[in-house]
Design a protein around this nucleic acid. Structure first.
Lengths: 203, 203, 203, 203
DNA sequence: TATGAATGAGCCTTCATTCAT
DNA sequence: AATGAATGAAGGCTCATTCAT
């Protein structure tokens, strides 16, 4: 008899993964408040109890979701840091556009930010993760400006915050984009950054 | 017998007003989900029933809140349009900074945007009002650039959206500022706009 | 049109009373742990929410139940205090027997004591009420001994505690008595007290 | 290969023993309702499944616990019966005091009695065992009175029940004693018995 | 008009129990 | 024999809404 496809640990990991993926979809669709454990477990095809077999609490689900998103962001950005000066500009533009195009991801971030603002316990962990992400982006932006021969119009961290803020703010402010039709957020952000660097280079 | 201070209609209008003001405070403080009818009516000094005597439903309260919010923004911006070219720059900066400093107002806008994204009925009215607000701000920004002798780095409407987006995004992204210590959103936005206009003027 | 039978306040009082009566029956039947809000409200003929319209929490229901029982006990015992020395002995015997015969009431007391042992918040209020009841009973027992010409075999408060303890302990230890067939607890307690007083008088 | 330290059967017996000991501690600490399978198995150092490998159900655990508890009482009391008349008084006092001092054991008995009152299946076995225990104690008390030269103030069985009842009732009625500071239950019971015997002896 | 008791649906969480490993 | 992921039935509690007053 062949061994089973999945060991026990792998099975649980699969369940966890499915629950997290379901949570992500549900939060994006219904908001943090609307994302009930019932909805999430049903979306994943499990019973409510399965969530509590895999996570400490509802909040822990979202915290883990957040951790992964941040981690992914940071890893991706860090990879861009290794690029040469000539390709960094296009790479950053591409990344920002991809990020802005992923509405679900942005809405998740917004919902978690909102939750952090009202929930001190959550906030502690949230801001720690956010800080890492911001610092990485700030470093990248700095390199981007150096590569462009322009000088930063303001503190790199403030600029990184601003870039993230625009991305989130634009996602909030527009009706859900029809699928396939990417939001304009990426273009706008890109235009802003390009505006600074090209002008500065000219002067 | 002297006439009562307030007619019946005036009394009801007063109740309505107080309930709306209370709802605004509660949404900003507790979020849309946390703003229960009980909380709102208590904040206004009434009982739950008063809300249902004055509004169709909980959602109707927020719809009215939104309407007034947008109306106020548009009126204020329109007033700035009448200013002369020499004072428009300072006026716009001032308005943006005041807006950014008012965290409650920003959080209310974010909560309403979020609600609009999930609620088609709400969304219909919301986006109509938002469009008006954006157009007004875009017109103002155009005048601002003209007055500065700079040319617009992108479509004025996109720039107006971006300005609003930064304001909302930054408010979301930072822990609640200590009262009295203004958020940096105003400064950042101002720096961005100034960056464009002054550099462009130099070149 | 004749006025309604019950004013609003009276209606609510009626609901409260019915809920408390239901809670009493359910606790006696199912224990504190088994007395769910669902069971209690159904037993009273209301919805679950009715309990929360009338009480702060589940615990508050039982605390109020306890308060009333203690109050009744104290009032009844205090009334006995006013009796002359010649009738106090029979009166106390009668009261103890009546108390012991009321199994529901005893089981309620036991359940609440148990809950108090595990729940500090509840314990605080519980022991305060219990102390009053004990002191009243101790006073009565003292008079009872004086009236009998016997001297107390131990501290009156310890004796009062012991009398209550026997009543509770015997109720716990026996299968539910068939209705109508009174438990022997009353007789046993009476025999113990009589044993002390008559012997002491003889010696 | 040397034989394993424990045969399979011995291993299982050990697991069973550890689970029962853990259950006893947990019930005393958290009550019957609070003694979850998770808590018990963790306290024993096993997982939930171990309980179901060794017992039919949660209730079966407590049934076995009860059986051992009663068996131990009866054995200990029976041992005292073999003592001579001169030492029986001190021995019984000592046993009662030890019993009363062991709050955990008393609380376990109370919890089991409570459970028996609501559960016919459990009750059947419980009352059979309790009867044996009572009869043994009654016999001992009779000898105690005879040894003291006093006559019984009431039926020996009723007195045995009363003694147990006081012990349980007092344990319930007082806040948890600080460890090391013995409860007064032992003293009170002793005083009651001594009161009867010494007075009776004098008269 | 405003009140607030009562409803009923829904939420987060706990837990005895099952069963594949 | 022991594990522990998953289930499913409760349980305590919240809240928008209704309606008699």
């Amino acid at each position: 008899m062949p061994p089973p496809r999945l060991t026990r640990a792998e099975q649980q990991a699969q369940t966890r993964e499915r629950l997290l993926a379901a949570a992500e979809r549900v939060v994006a669709r219904c908001g943090y408040g609307g994302a009930s454990i019932d909805l999430i477990s049903a979306e994943a095809g499990y019973s409510k109890g399965a969530v509590y077999s895999n996570f400490e609490s509802k909040e822990a689900v979202f915290l883990e979701l957040l951790r992964r998103h941040m981690e992914k962001n940071i890893t991706e950005l860090a990879a861009l840091m290794d690029l040469g000066a000539d390709s960094i500009s296009a790479a950053l533009s591409g990344w920002l556009e991809a990020m802005a195009a992923n509405d679900d991801c942005t809405m998740l971030a917004v919902e978690l930010q909102l939750h952090a603002k009202r929930n001190p316990a959550f906030a502690g962990r949230y801001y720690a993760l956010q800080r890492q992400s911001t610092l990485t982006l700030a470093g990248l932006i700095e390199r981007y400006f150096i590569a462009s021969g322009a000088h930063l119009p303001m503190d790199a961290i403030d600029l990184a915050d601003a870039v993230t803020a625009i991305s989130h703010g634009l996602a909030l402010q527009r009706p859900d984009a029809a699928p396939g039709q990417p939001s304009e957020a990426g273009k706008v952000i890109d235009a802003l950054l390009k505006g600074f660097t090209t002008r500065a280079a000219v002067s």
